[in-house]
Design a protein around this nucleic acid. Sequence first.
DNA 1: CGCCCTATTGAGACTTGTCAAGTCGGGTGG
DNA 2: CCACCCGACTTGACAAGTCTCAATAGGGCG
Lengths: 225, 225
Amino acid sequence: MSPRQNTQALLTIYSGLSREEIAALDALVSYKTLETGEYLFHQHTPGRSVYMLEEGTLMMERSSSTGRRQVMAFMQPGNFIGITHNEHYEFTVSALTPAKIRELPIKPFIVLQDEIPQLKENVRRIGGNILAHTLDQVFALGQKKAHERLCFLLKQLSDRQSPQRRHLIELVMTRQDIADYLGLTIETVSRAFGKLKREKVIDIYSAHTVEILDKTIVEDLALAD
Amino acid sequence: MSPRQNTQALLTIYSGLSREEIAALDALVSYKTLETGEYLFHQHTPGRSVYMLEEGTLMMERSSSTGRRQVMAFMQPGNFIGITHNEHYEFTVSALTPAKIRELPIKPFIVLQDEIPQLKENVRRIGGNILAHTLDQVFALGQKKAHERLCFLLKQLSDRQSPQRRHLIELVMTRQDIADYLGLTIETVSRAFGKLKREKVIDIYSAHTVEILDKTIVEDLALAD
DNA sequence: CGCCCTATTGAGACTTGTCAAGTCGGGTGG
DNA sequence: CCACCCGACTTGACAAGTCTCAATAGGGCG
């Protein structure tokens, strides 16, 4: 929906830093590993760290007391978490697969931004990308039909693969996760998959492995603008 | 949906600055006025300034080549525009009423952030509030029914009024603007108004003036979590 | 007073949600 | 190794919500 291409996979807090600056950053880093289903942190808890995903897939969600749930993002290696929040995390992050995560305590990280202008700029741009992603999602939920929303997700997942593997998509999340991301029910998601398959836009090898047969149509439906 | 209250009306880039620091910021400021319907800037144009709304109401929207439109926000005095973007504006901003706007060129503004830590912190927090608002909208569009989405908007507008006038709401935007903000059609918005009126949750004096009769119900429906 | 634009209301179609039944597949225990 | 079991996914029938199209009402401004 926006003309922005997928530059965000390439942008990290390390972009353009000198060897010494990277070393200064790395001095703050500790590592965390999560098993499938484990939580990185919960909604409404104080946010004291910034995270960078190294391996695996994470899911960011917001749940309500009445049981409604909205998945805000699926995160893949290179993504950042917690860069843009204020004092509390406003969402829960959990692991869809075993995951390896770099953790940086937020206070020294902020101090370091004052010493390294490029780092501050990187953070600014990552924050901009996160907002841009969220605005894309608002557009999708507000304006698109079920099968278009599904293509919106497929395109996002496809764009983050290496160019050779763009067409083959591994869906590590459940249908319920997809439904809650796209603001639909699992049944509607299932029917949207069926519709795309019938129309030969995608092929479905198993519930969690699909191939994009017609990239152009997927993108047209995903953008739908 | 989040526990965050409406603190964002109070937070500006000036918060907690000394007299000298405010003067340094004000040295960058120029003023703009817009008539109803005029544009501040357009989607896909390079972003060279940061803006603060002083008077009036602005609307931020994203439009597609196929004519679909999503309104991302209605902005009221105290709100900031352009703080979180990268090189291009990813949306269009226009005036719903005559408006008065402070403009700060982005480059010196960023330089000043290096000199004034509190300013940098303010910008960080405003960015966090903008993202939080957008996440609220994702939740609303993904999970709520028409009349709940309308209460979501009414609550947002109500929260930004002075405490005495909280119950009386002036809708400066059209039904089409509301529909495009909530991901609905004008007819559905109209029926949602009718439903809330029939149920004595609100009273409708004219198409653009409504009174909240039962604040609790409006909030329950707005949060719906 | 009348015109025009916006909003409301109504009827019917379409999309999505709900409820229920059935299928598939991976994992476990015999 | 096979059969069963259980959770996840799919499919179907129907209900509910929203959209579309059309007609009507209302309000502001000349």
